[in-house]
Design a protein around this nucleic acid. Structure first.
Lengths: 335, 335
DNA sequence: CTGAAAGCGCTTACAG
DNA sequence: CTGAAAGCGCTTACAG
């Protein structure tokens, strides 16, 4: 900036005014400064600017998701990125992997970078450690996770209702023994999906069997193994409700390995690529991760614009997509 | 920091020393400072620190990929993130979408944040606009794209060899009329894959037909439509080589729509989830995006540690994965 | 081993 | 409409 000022023959302050598009600058001067800046390939230093500015904005937001290589997370990332770009903000991304220690590390790193806000799918059981940031004026928007121990905006799918509709769909096709295969119990949405399962069990008078409830599944491989065991057990279920996309894929693999794809019904929570091309095609309760990302980003930028409206809880509806695997009727129980 | 100093009853400089783990600090003093920092929940401001430091490091790297919601890109992101974390760096991510204007915008934004280095799959035909950054000491590592108009480290799959092996595999199963379906010609790896296709055409004496060469495919939908037309045309090919994962999925959809899945052979470049669960399962030339990300990050941190070794060109080998769709033998040409 | 002064690149608050 | 001085939070370069 000093060099630009020297080249243009003006003061530092004038360069600053031109860079920040302040109106009160003579046209000729503005042109001179712009020319000098272009010639020197000058790019303002946001860090230095943020240091002195009253609002101290760094023009970055932190985005902490479960795992950026999972399509659900990356669709959210992409949506947030798009909105952020229209505001001239960049996105600092991180994968939490359901590890609270990792969350602390990443949050601390981003705080040191003075991000202007956090959008996060927290991996912690309790997010009260973020109260300090919030009180310091850094807005928090939770996605795919309800805040616990702290008040904040959040955006998520209606998990309980979605799970209910999945299990109801199976019940309507004659199934009474429907297994639940879900993620870690520590994840609030997993709890909600299980609650939806239980709602349907009660409403439709389904048989509840402890052995048909399997939780804590994190990977396709783990789900595959558990479903293999389950389907080979004595009182095997005739239908499965799977609580997220990796579990659904693992279940499909296990069913296929046993050659039961025409017998065991499956409805999965969360859609995935090529679900419609499998045989049978997989019936799912689809989420809309892009909508979750967009809504979260909108809330974030509203807060950054100074909104002090009451915290919002945005529920993004889910949609049952009928494709085949969920419409297999219950005949006789296997074995 | 001022508050920490006051609370601990020491000078600013001493707090700075403790925060930066400089050895020459009295143990008791260090403990006092740490206690004060913890009590005030102090987090150092990287921006301010970078401003004054000799090396001016911001502890951030910019990672610009094609599209973070594509599994190929997101696997690279994830790998880079892991390596960066071990160095205490955060990652500023962006999606370029093969749009050079968008690349300029994102690069400029990251330069304003003074990222310490760029890892990028450039969308520009020519990357000489990055020379300024490079000369200013910001290392550049290219992934999945060869640098043009600039010298730098780069890491990519061996596209030409991989494509060759895919087409050779089809030729060995009796095909002489093999179509090429590829991405934008402006992408260097797409050019390489087409070159590999031509190599195999020449080596195996295959029939080369302009009508069987389709370029510029960016989405599953576009590929699906073109393959539908191609397979219904008069001189339809008996086999397809598809240049990236979205194209392969589009081709599989088109073939399925026409009921030709037992007749038309397919080998795709780049693996994708569930490729093994389709019927027939899809034979692919798999890339290793995680390895690409790790190697790129290693090169980046070597440069950031001051390495001035000659620029490296790392080629990550591809692997042909035989699953079924590529082993369908040529019988008679369709129609 | 510890500290007081200066300065990184920028904006603020003020004067002209 | 333009500029000179001070200061954001930190580290440097030096003195003790």
């Amino acid at each position: 900036m000093k060099d630009v000022a020297k080249l243009a023959g003006v003061s530092l302050k004038t360069v600053s005014r031109v860079i920040n598009d302040e109106p009160s600058v003579n046209k000729a001067m503005r042109a001179k400064v712009r020319a000098a800046a272009a010639e020197l390939n000058y790019q303002p230093n946001y860090g230095a600017s943020a240091l002195r500015r009253n609002d101290g904005r760094s023009q970055q937001i932190g985005l902490l998701l479960e795992d950026l290589s999972n399509p659900f997370s990356s669709a959210i990332y992409r949506a947030v990125e798009e909105v952020a770009m229209t505001y001239g903000f960049t996105v600092l991304g991180g994968s939490l992997e359901e590890d609270p220690a990792r969350e602390r590390t990443l949050v601390a790193a981003m705080v040191r970078h003075r991000v202007d806000g956090f959008i996060l799918a927290s991996a912690s059981h309790d997010q009260s450690h973020l109260v300090n940031e919030q009180e310091a004026g850094v807005p928090l928007v939770f996605v795919d996770r309800q805040p616990v121990g702290i008040q904040a905006d959040y955006v998520m799918s209606d998990s309980r209702q979605g799970a209910y509709s999945a299990v109801a769909h199976l019940a309507q096709h004659g199934h009474t023994h429907i297994a639940y295969l879900g993620d870690l119990e520590s994840i609030v949405t997993a709890q909600d999906r299980f609650a939806g399962y239980l709602d349907a069990v009660a409403d439709f008078g389904l048989c509840f069997d402890e052995a048909h409830v399997i939780k804590g599944l994190r990977t396709t491989e783990a789900a595959q193994e558990k479903v293999l065991q389950l389907l080979q057990s004595k009182n095997a279920p005739t239908a499965l409700f799977t609580g997220q996309n990796l579990i659904t894929m693992g279940a499909v693999r296990a069913i296929r390995a046993l050659g039961l794809q025409k017998k065991i019904a499956v409805v999965g929570f969360d859609d995935f690529v090529l679900a419609d091309m499998l045989e049978p095609a997989v019936t799912v309760v689809a989420q809309d991760p892009a909508a979750i990302g967009v809504e979260a980003a909108k809330l974030m930028f509203a807060r950054l614009s100074g909104s002090d409206a009451p915290y919002e809880a945005v529920e993004i509806p889910t949609a049952l997509i009928v494709r085949g695997s969920g419409e297999i009727r219950a005949k006789s129980r296997t074995k």
